[in-house]
């Protein structure tokens, strides 16, 4: 279980996250909602270790990761699909997926079928450079790269941003099949309410750097949405 307790983080002088606590339990799809600029991506970065926490604790399965480098967190089972995908543009698609194996706990050189079978288009483009792919293809590549290490928790930061509807459907199916397998938990940041309602188990709403609301799917009423999410 991934747990964040009273986390405070920010850039330079400015504090973005004041007091954030959340939990992602095994097999759950937890969604993080909030208006623009409330600190969703900052929270993802702090969980991954790209941003140092000023206060609070990030822990995974009882291990305290608050001071750990991103690589250590990845190796302990946290996979990350960042906003903007961050594909290695000069490397081939195949090399990009292979890099996903770096955090794998199994000492394997083979890309697991479970990572790639959901994206049948990728193997046909293995020799092309990552930077030459379209946005949607890069998003699928970022998913496959993260899944290659068979993570126990997957952090997804706006996976549907700027993606054509049919690939959004593919991504929805992927998240659902991950959920059905029950071995990988997901922490999802996404703007589309319709999307998160169709896959999420539990919801957190961030406001001004703190958790303003949390609850299950049935509690996420129009009232809540009006209060915290409509502009």
């Amino acid at each position: 279980m991934l747990a964040v307790q009273q986390l405070e983080a920010g850039y330079g002088e400015s504090v973005i996250l004041r007091d954030v606590s959340l939990r992602v339990k095994k097999g759950q799809v937890v969604c993080l909602l909030g208006r623009n600029g409330v600190g969703k991506t900052t929270l993802m970065k702090s969980i991954m270790g790209l941003l140092k926490a000023r206060k609070g604790v990030v822990s995974y399965n009882e291990a305290n990761l608050t001071k750990a480098a991103p690589g250590v967190r990845a190796k302990s089972g946290i996979g990350y699909v960042p906003q903007g995908r961050e594909i290695f543009a000069q490397l081939t698609v195949y090399e990009n997926v292979l890099l996903g194996l770096e955090a794998s706990k199994e000492k394997t050189r083979e890309i697991p079928a479970s990572a790639i079978e959901k994206f049948p288009v990728l193997p046909t483009m293995y020799e092309r450079r990552g930077g030459d792919l379209s946005g949607g293809q890069q998003q699928q590549l970022a998913f496959a790269r993260a899944l290659a290490s068979k993570p126990e928790v997957l952090l997804l930061d706006e996976p549907c941003e700027g993606i054509q509807p049919s690939i959004v459907e593919d991504i929805r199916d992927v998240i659902r099949s991950i959920k059905a397998e029950g071995t990988t938990a997901v922490l999802l940041v996404e703007q589309s309410l319709e999307f998160v309602q169709s896959v999420g188990d539990y919801f957190y709403i961030l406001e001004k750097g703190a958790i303003a609301w949390e609850g299950g799917l049935e509690q996420l009423s129009d009232e809540v949405i009006r209060t915290y999410l409509t502009v």
């Binding site: 270790g49 480098a69 991103p70 690589g71 990845a74 990350y80 961050e86 090399e95 890099l99």
Partner: peptide
Amino acid sequence: RRMRAVMQNRDMAACLGIST
């Protein structure tokens, strides 16, 4: 491959478990 990954995108390489 690790080397090229780190030189192109240090943060992402670190997030994949590479010791930069």
